[in-house]
Design a binder for these strands. Structure first.
Lengths: 111, 111
DNA sequence: AATACGTACAACCATTTGGTTTCACAATAC
DNA sequence: GTATTGTGAAACCAAATGGTTGTACGTATT
């Protein structure tokens, strides 16, 4: 029985879960190049404003974007730090495969 | 020269979705170091054999592991190629942020 | 031959997800 | 002021997810 003491498994769950949707990946891409309001984002997708709002909320919950009020708008900014975190995770897995890292378990139980 | 990441949206969805679960990430980790049977995997988790079987099926559907029959067992092997695909995806996002990649859109449209 | 083991698969259940519509409200525009 | 725009939040719905138990069947073991 693998007992998971580390709570932040949930955080990794949220990051990958948030990236597992094409619309959300597109929102991340767009907000990495520069901020955009929720309605600006919503204008380009074939779904309701509320649906896009929910996607943004999922990304925000995963720490992949941040919301910054400006007037009546909410500017969405992509958060590269969280992406780097996901990158490091995948890098660690590749490290396992290559056998370069000997005792990686602690790292993968997720910092 | 532009190397095209030829991955469909659905495929990327499945990869990240599969990685969005701690048990499945653990299975990937374990099968990257060496093959393991489904029952060997299941023995270490606090859930039914059938549940682990389903997790393996999700990973297999995402191409993160492969199943190879040997006798009455099914040996599960981790698949580093698929992990590399996910890595390249995240690398591309980081490239956007850094502004180092100029024409990345075609790459990210993940056709 | 009989038994145990490893896997597959179906049926079922509770919760989550991804979408919708609708209503409310603050900020801007006219 | 009134109207419009941008957002938030609730209620609702169908489908997917993650778990369970039970059954069936090929493969080893004895």
């Amino acid at each position: 029985m693998v007992v998971r003491i580390d709570v932040s498994d949930d955080e990794v769950d949220r990051i990958f879960r948030a990236l597992a949707d094409a619309t959300r990946r597109d929102i991340v891409r767009r907000t990495l190049t520069g901020p955009a309001s929720v309605s600006q984002l919503a204008a380009t997708y074939d779904m309701s404003f509320a649906a896009v709002q929910k996607h943004v909320a999922v990304l925000e919950g995963a720490g992949l974007v941040t919301k910054q009020p400006r007037g009546r708008e909410r500017l969405i900014h992509g958060n590269p730090e969280t992406l780097q975190r996901a990158q490091r995770l995948l890098d660690a897995y590749e490290g396992i495969w290559r056998g370069r890292i000997s005792r990686l378990d602690a790292l993968l139980e997720d910092d």
